[in-house]
Nucleic acid binder design. Structure first.
Length: 407
RNA sequence: GCGGGUGUCGCCAAGCGGUUAAGGCCCCUGGUUGUGGUCCAGGUAUACGUGGGUUCGAUUCCCAUCACUCGCCCCA
């Protein structure tokens, strides 16, 4: 027997039962974005590799070891590992930088990262995100966050927390990194092995360590003191305060997370994550970040465009859907059987098709099924019942009659 | 890249050295039933991931391998 072909590792087949939830999320998001004035953008699933090398940063794991990279006709291409870089590229290429500001966009689609699959983490996964170009005001950051919050609320999610921080600019971080290492070097022998390893590679990650002894060492080390590069005309601290004040006024519960210093290279100033309580949620494992984003004022310029500030977020659809309450398809189901106990003539069939058509017009939200199996009438009744039909229609003495299938 | 878990019919799941390898669900057929819900009878299926080894004998033990899965890393 030929070997079975299976889906590639880390991918999923979404069967009709599952796509109901996806459609629900997509529909909700689409309506919300439209009413907030965000336009949809669709960009290619593969791009020039250089886009991500420059945009996301060569040192990040995403680019470093997780890209699906391939060459075709001497072009170095790769499957997109995230959405922002492609949107920025398209934004520049379409000349949107000359459009009136701000430019508000949203996108959705598959992303690809070559990594070990786990609960809530796939090699092909889907993101839904927004990007706003052209405004560097704290109020823009709040709007973008409020939009994410509104979407998650509309979908009925509970137990959400917004974590945010200001991580300054790349140069602020370089200074902080040096200071951090200087501060921690003498303490190194007391820290756990993982932290010792991270000291050189990525000292920011050390701040996330869960070992109590390590935590104590990091207690007083905050990036705040290194935020020298101001926003446009606003001091960093003042900007952050404006953001948090406004969030509170909007009843969006936030917490400042000083440890939120990671992220892709392109972030400047505001970074945030929305986490969910994943206790007892199937398919989420230990992962609880649903949405992540921030401001990226230097990205457009890095990719060769006019200096343009930007801010946005992306949320993982697989993770989001795992958190959603089960969504049942509640539309009534009616089944049309072609005839009564006697065999069906061509006229009977034509009449059945017509009857189905009429019912579909009369009940636009219902599902109307025509049984074309040609099985015994009794079998058709059984099948209708098994499917959970609320009623069946059948012909008797030339008349269509409905029979309710109550329990 | 590094750890842990699991692999028996489409799904769930017994068996743990010698079995015709249970059972349930699903599916199909026939019957019963107030033309369907219940119930009864029957039927279909190349099911022990793969390759070695131990043994008189392996689904059951050992090794390897593959696949899936969970965790670390990192992230959505």
């Amino acid at each position: 027997m030929a070997e079975k072909i299976q889906k590639p590792k880390g991918t999923q087949d979404l069967l009709p039962e599952a796509t109901i939830a996806w459609q629900h999320v997509e529909t909700t998001a689409r309506q919300l974005f439209a009413s907030w004035g965000y336009g949809e953008i669709r960009t290619p699933i593969f791009e020039d590799t250089a886009l991500f090398l420059r945009g996301v940063g060569e040192t990040t794991d995403i680019v470093h070891k997780e890209m699906y990279r391939f060459e075709k006709s001497e072009r170095d291409l790769c499957l997109r590992p995230e959405g922002t870089a492609g949107v920025v590229r398209a934004f520049m290429e379409a000349g949107l930088s000359r459009a009136s500001k701000p430019v508000k966009l949203w996108y959705t689609g598959p992303m690809f990262r070559y990594e070990r699959p786990q609960a809530g983490r796939y090699r092909q996964f889907h993101q839904l995100g927004v990007e706003v170009f052209g405004l560097a005001t704290p109020e823009t950051d709040v709007e973008v966050i409020a939009l994410a919050w509104q979407l998650l609320e509309s979908l009925g999610l509970k137990g959400l927390t917004l974590h945010l921080n200001d991580i300054g600019t790349a140069s602020d971080r370089t200074a902080f990194r040096a200071k951090l290492q200087e501060h921690l070097r003498p303490l190194l022998p007391q820290l756990c092995k993982t932290c010792q390893h991270r000291f050189d590679e990525n000292p920011f990650r050390m701040l996330d360590c869960k070992v109590p002894a390590c935590q104590a060492a990091y207690e007083s080390v905050y990036i705040d003191d290194f935020l020298k590069t101001p926003w446009t005309g606003i001091d960093s601290q003042a900007a952050f305060t404006r953001i948090t004040t406004l969030l509170s006024a909007l009843n969006i519960p936030w917490v400042q997370n000083h440890k939120l210093v990671r992220g892709l290279d392109y972030y400047t100033h505001t970074v945030f994550e929305i986490t969910a309580n994943t206790d007892g949620v199937d398919g989420m494992g230990t992962i609880n970040t649903v949405c992540g984003g921030g401001r990226y004022n230097g990205l457009v310029e890095t990719l060769g465009g006019e200096p343009t500030p930007g801010v946005g977020w992306a949320l993982g659809l697989e993770r989001l859907i795992a958190l959603l309450p089960k969504h049942e398809d509640s539309s009534p189901l009616m089944v049309v059987l072609p005839s009564g106990n006697d065999g069906s003539s061509p006229q009977d069939w034509a009449s059945a098709y017509q009857q189905a058509k009429t019912l579909r017009q009369q009940h636009p939200t219902a599902t109307i099924l025509l049984d074309t199996s040609n099985r015994a009438f009794k079998k058709q009744m059984e099948a209708a019942d098994k499917r959970g039909a609320s009623s069946v229609w059948f012909q008797r003495d030339g008349e269509w009659q409905q029979k309710l299938l109550g329990r």
